[in-house]
């Protein structure tokens, strides 16, 4: 059966597969660019009329426009394949961002982040598991929410879904909940950061630790400042690199209960789950460390990374569907929200302590 499909595919399918992405990518670009224009327009209007308007970054505009479209008119089928590429733009953007980091900074910040990440993962899993039991959620949904909240939202949930053989419904809900909670965080975290007068580095580390979806972590950081966005991506990538270990632990746990396949070849499993874009990021950072690029070239690579993120942020809004949450009911969402709140508070404490010790 699969061979017949494979034989039919190549001649027609490949160009068509690219063509069907175009409407969605064009929509991502249009929304992202509208966000960029909105930021400039508000700024110019404030200047011209001597008004102290809040500086709303293009990131937030793009996400808001996307949110409004997806939760009101909805997204037409023709745009969906292209919108799904937002994850591709995110990863390409992260690799390009490597040009703005020297490897020494990556190791220093990555080292501090790694210590905090390990604590954050332990805390998030423990809280989610306890809350899941209290609220009597389905055990596999609790596992998905725990993986999503401890590591990296959507990709972690998808990775875990296959490994622990969870239902599609549970995974769709866990993804919707993580995205919706992250969207709320985009408004709350920068406000808290400003209230506590956090440094750009400290805020970036916090956003990278506390916001679950990589695109939203990058967005939360970028809303605070450019540097905070950069640091948030680095911290979040460190967290993402741990995905294999956590998913493997859950896979082994569910296999021991006879409810998932036993994992054969644990090293291969870890490599399969390892986010390869982290390697790309480190490679470009290595090139930058050896001064492969001049100033203008670094600026161009940084701008390419911004354009890629612009498409990503538009996609985040378009992919967040609050209606999915209504479908599963409020209880799992409340569990997710309670866990997120605790993780937010714990990571904030960790980051403030680390900022004092390591002078972030």
């Amino acid at each position: 059966m699969s061979e017949a499909v494979a034989i039919q595919r190549p001649a027609v399918a490949l160009p068509w597969r690219f063509v069907r992405l175009l409407p969605g990518i064009a929509l991502l670009f249009a929304i992202g660019y509208a966000g960029k224009l909105a930021e400039t327009l508000v700024k110019d209007y404030g200047k011209a009329h001597h008004l102290a308007l809040p500086n709303i970054e293009y990131v937030l505009w793009a996400i808001l426009i996307g949110l409004v479209i997806s939760n009101t008119a909805g997204v037409a089928q023709i745009f969906r394949p292209g919108i799904a590429t937002y994850d591709f733009w995110l990863k390409a953007g992260i690799v390009l961002l490597g040009a703005r980091f020297l490897l020494g900074d990556v190791l220093k910040l990555g080292g501090v982040s790694l210590g905090l990440v390990v604590i954050e993962i332990g805390v998030a899993i423990a809280i989610m598991t306890v809350l899941g039991r209290w609220f009597k959620l389905k055990p596999k949904l609790t596992s998905l929410l725990a993986v999503g909240s401890s590591i990296c939202g959507v990709s972690a949930i998808i990775a875990a879904k296959g490994a622990i053989e969870a239902d599609d419904d549970d995974a769709a809900f866990a993804i919707a909940a993580i995205l919706a909670l992250g969207a709320f965080g985009l408004f709350a975290y920068p406000a808290i950061g400003h209230f506590l007068h956090m440094s750009e580095h400290a805020f970036g580390v916090w956003a990278g630790l506390a916001v679950d979806n990589t695109a939203e972590a990058a967005a939360a950081g970028a809303i605070y400042s450019d540097t905070a966005g950069k640091v948030a991506v680095l911290t979040k990538s460190t967290r993402n690199a741990m995905i294999g270990f956590v998913v493997l632990a859950y896979a082994v746990y569910w296999a021991s209960k006879g409810q998932a396949k036993t994992v054969q070849g644990k090293a291969a499993f870890l490599w399969q789950k390892f986010p390869k874009f982290v390697l790309g990021f480190l490679f470009v950072s290595l090139l930058a460390t050896f001064q492969t690029f001049d100033k203008a070239q670094i600026a161009s690579l940084a701008n390419l990374s911004r354009w890629a993120f612009l498409l990503t942020f538009a996609g985040v809004g378009l992919k967040t569907d609050f209606r999915e949450i209504r479908r599963q009911g409020a209880r799992p969402f409340v569990v997710g929200a309670l866990a997120e709140l605790t993780v937010t508070a714990v990571t904030l404490g960790l980051v403030l302590a680390a900022a004092a010790i390591f002078n972030l």
Binding site: A92, V95, K276, F277, G280, F293, A296, S300, L304
Partner: peptide
């Protein structure tokens, strides 16, 4: 041939852009 994952495609696309910026001085504004 084994299918490449999205991660690898993102790395390849980004590295292709890096090569363009480095070799033909592709200039990108914001």
């Amino acid at each position: 041939m084994k299918k490449l994952s999205l991660d690898w495609w993102a790395v390849i696309a980004a590295l292709a852009l890096v090569v363009l910026v480095k070799t033909v001085n592709l200039s990108v504004g914001w």
